[in-house]
Amino acid sequence: MTQRSTLSHLDWLEAEAIHIMREVAGQCSNPVLLFSGGKDSICMLRLAEKAFRPGKFPFPLMHIDTGHNYKEVVAFRDKRAAELGERLIVRSVEDSMARGTVVLKHEGESRNKHQSVTLLEAIEEFGFDACIGGARRDEEKARAKERIFSFRDEFGQWDPKNQRPELWSLYNARSHKGENIRAFPISNWTEMDVWQYIERENLELPSIYFAHTRPVVMRQGAIVPVNVPLVSGEVANPSRAGEEIIDLQVRFRTVGDISCTAPVESDADTVEKIVLETATTTITERGATRLDDQTSDASMEQRKKEGYF
């Protein structure tokens, strides 16, 4: 009869993710793993360790830096890559702006969606045929329908109505020169799974994931961090005239470009407390914290069609 008890759900998800990473390494000639220093990509690094150690990773790490990232996260990104002894490539949206390939509508416009341009430029520069990313299907409606191995044409476009069938765990990563595969090993993970995995694996995180006090203002019902010091010495999200700045105890559920990620009010200062809070929250991760997804019902789908992750 039964040979064994069932794998726990985390063991199953871990095994699936390792399998996917190895398929990328086995099928693609020049892959790259996107690493931002955020919680999902921190899990990805642990999965890559489990997939490939004692060998080196068969791909470099890459971050597309908008120049508007939290200092703590940027420092963590560099530290983690160094600890692992893996190569980290950083390409910057500000370089694309200097080249004129990214033009902001106005100075304060969010640079988040412009990452697509810099990403496509980096793919071309290095000749990457696959990018491994930490996107999850539970994050957003369009992502719920994206394949684990997602084909992008020469312009990086995702065509949701013309996706390759994907069956069993037989992945098709074939592409012609100039085309690209995006592979998502943690597609089947939820926010809760990520936090449980961080807890189980005892993974270190940038400090802003935990409760801390920072100056914020309230804009259209969202908590907006203001006067955020940047690596460059400049300040992001300056407060506007007439706004009341309050010091609030918050943590970030998701971390990305400062202009579009908002924290939530929280006193959870350990992973254990965050797992508990995640279990009882009433708002989705993106609903609470992504200012960019609220523009319209389809804004993620739109960005993906334009080459976004």
Binding site: R137, K141, A142, A144, K145, P160, K161, Q163, S187, N188, D297, A298, E301, Q302
Partner: peptide
């Protein structure tokens, strides 16, 4: 999930 699905009130693709 997808724009076309919402517009047409149909399901086009497998969703998870």
């Amino acid at each position: 999930g997808l724009q076309a699905e919402r517009e047409q009130g149909i399901t086009i693709d497998v969703a998870y």
